[in-house]
């Protein structure tokens, strides 16, 4: 497949909603919505990992992706992209 030319790229904005709101004013140019979703999932996992380092993880915290018009394309919450097993669950296996 031919790589997308830069002129065909779309700009997506990645806003972080965790303990505070961090709005993305700069955006990222990406070939399509699939690429934006993949990036949002990576970002959500990495930011969840940052939360874990502080000892507090809220699974409703999320990354919201908007397009250039400001419309929300996706919202990826930390809980959506993490499979969490606890000890009780494991002991039943």
């Amino acid at each position: 497949m031919e790589p997308a030319r830069l002129s065909e790229y779309m700009r997506f904005f990645f806003h972080l909603h965790n303990d505070i709101e961090t709005l993305d004013e700069e955006g990222r140019d990406l070939p399509d919505a699939d690429a934006a979703l993949a990036l949002a999932i990576d970002e959500a996992r990495l930011m969840a990992a940052e939360s874990v380092k502080t000892g507090h993880l809220d699974l409703t915290h999320n990354v919201e992706v908007t397009d250039e018009s400001g419309a929300t394309c996706f919202r990826v919450s930390f809980g959506d992209v993490l499979a969490i097993a606890d000890r009780q669950e494991k002991s039943h296996r």
Partner: peptide, 11 residues
């Protein structure tokens, strides 16, 4: 860092 993480730390 990822850009979203940079943005959060800038904040």
């Amino acid at each position: 860092f990822t850009s979203i993480h940079i943005n959060r730390m800038l904040r």
